[in-house]
Design a protein around this nucleic acid. Structure first.
Lengths: 205, 205
DNA sequence: TAGATTGTTAATCGATTAACAATC
DNA sequence: TAGATTGTTAATCGATTAACAATC
């Protein structure tokens, strides 16, 4: 156990462990080891143990880790033992795909509002949501006390929207726009750009 | 200049530099510095210089880097000074969003075939493509000599499809299924799972 | 008990930063 | 020329791995 600041690189691996453990639980397994979990996620057993031990002693010598117990602990650590409301900004194809995605709910997230700037789209429905005017984004997000946003607007609009999101009290942004955002330090961003991921692989081809 | 093996972490930053430089070029800029580029992408100037200098001497003391020249060099290094054909597997919402995405072409990629296993979907159109039966995926990909795939099938199908992709000679997979894939070492994978990205942020909230 | 596996320490390995001579 | 900025070296910082006592 270690109460110092945990490196971000470790935090980044925990969701991967969580995902693998959930699959093990779903297939009825009760117990695992650092060895087995490591093989499943492509990480050394030593690293699995080191990462987990930052937060406490969750295993047992000789038998390994109880899957449900470790799941519970990881969910606590990552604060996904609850449901986070999420605002979606940008009702294009990607926005639609995310709005319809069934995989959020059981992993801690729920889209609760959708915004766009296109007059044609405002007022229309995506699944259960009515698309709202991005002009009202600051007050709507504040009123709903939403802390997480997913951004699927064009690159040209992303920085501008980001500033409104910060103003609205958003603390974490999952950014699908292909641009690095300029942000205050207290707001976290994660980037998803399929092209940068593809370009990372072509180097090796 | 350094001819040893370049660390993957450096390769991972190059697409980010490339993206920022492209934006600078689009807005008419001719020249930049490690300082300026670093601020734009959130990386130290020293690191920008170190990363770039792995591949040659592309800058000039006193004046910095020519944007078009550095763009050209980075595209060469990443092998995106050409267009890569890409196979898309999974014609769900995410598959549709990717098939319709206009941002691939000018950054080195082009979807050329779409597969699904759903009899209802096979034969239907997505944009310009007719959805093909995943049962024929190995011969179709081999025949077209495609080396890169994007995987947007459910987690339960992903490992199975991956094995077929490897058999078909695919060398890089962009995986949207929320599961770690088991792969031979000579095939590269990149993972995109919005939930793991979100869970990485909630820790800090 | 004997075997298995944890949590942790120390050693190794790798990445980042600071500093500056070279030079445009 | 004077000012700016590169490419590179050495120092620092951080992450990973190997090894093993503790113990279930």
């Amino acid at each position: 156990m270690n109460s110092d600041k945990i490196p971000d690189i470790i935090i980044g691996r925990l969701p991967i462990y969580l995902r693998a453990l959930q699959r093990m639980a779903d297939s009825g397994l009760k117990t695992t080891s650092s060895q087995e979990l490591g093989e499943l996620v492509g990480v050394s057993a030593a690293q699995i143990r080191k990462d987990i031990s930052q937060f406490g002693e969750f295993g047992k010598q000789g038998t390994g880790y109880s899957i449900t117990y470790l799941l519970e602990k990881l969910r606590e650590i990552l604060k996904v033992n609850r449901i986070w409301d999420v605002a979606l900004i940008g009702a294009g194809d990607m926005g639609h795909a995310l709005a319809n995605y069934q995989g959020f709910a059981n992993r801690g997230f729920k889209i609760v509002m959708v915004f766009d700037s296109d007059k044609e789209k405002i007022g229309q429905k995506i699944g259960d949501f009515t698309i709202e005017d991005v002009a009202h984004i600051v007050e709507k997000i504040k009123a709903a006390d939403v802390k997480i946003a997913m951004l699927t607007v064009p690159a040209s609009a992303a920085q501008n929207v980001t500033e409104k999101l910060v103003q609205a009290g958003i603390k974490g942004i999952l950014n699908y726009a292909p641009i690095t955002l300029n942000m205050p330090n207290h707001v976290k961003v994660q980037y998803i750009d399929p092209v940068t991921h593809l370009q990372r692989m072509t180097y090796y081809l």
